[in-house]
């Protein structure tokens, strides 16, 4: 009866920002990104991609509560970079990787349907 609507898990409510950014007040080059209506799928690939960036000193994420549909990604970088730069970079790199995967799979699909 009082169950929340199922779509609340993936539809960002009106007036809410998808991604909000908050600098750490004590540590320079550290910040938290709160991403609304996302889960492990996005958080974990971002985290692992951030680990590939040598300027990233720390990258981690948490899902604060299973019924709060948001994730918090925390990034701490070296002074040559910034959390925002590392965050953007990781998204660009993942996007590039997925493009490569798509092209690779399409080529393979074409080859496969020709061969068999």
């Amino acid at each position: 009866m009082n169950a929340p609507d199922r779509y609340e898990r993936f539809v960002v409510p009106e007036g809410t920002k998808k991604v909000s950014y908050e600098r750490d007040t004590k540590i320079i080059n550290a910040a938290s990104f709160t991403i609304e209506r996302e889960d492990h799928t996005i958080a974990n690939i971002l985290r692992m991609q951030l680990h590939r960036d040598p300027n990233v000193l720390f990258a981690g994420y948490k899902l604060p509560h299973p019924l709060q549909y948001k994730i918090i990604v925390r990034i701490h970088t070296a002074s040559q970079s910034s959390p925002m730069q590392a965050y953007n970079q990781s998204i660009n790199d993942l996007d590039k990787e997925l493009d490569q995967l798509k092209n690779g799979f399409e080529a393979e699909l074409l080859k496969f349907s020709k061969d068999y």
Binding site: V19, I91, D99
Partner: peptide, 21 residues
């Protein structure tokens, strides 16, 4: 699989920082 790649790309695009941020 192709759709999954496309959806994942869209999801990544959605979590890009907005200009005002």
């Amino acid at each position: 699989l192709l759709n999954a790649i496309e959806i994942l790309k869209q999801k990544l695009d959605a979590v890009r920082l907005s200009e005002d941020t």
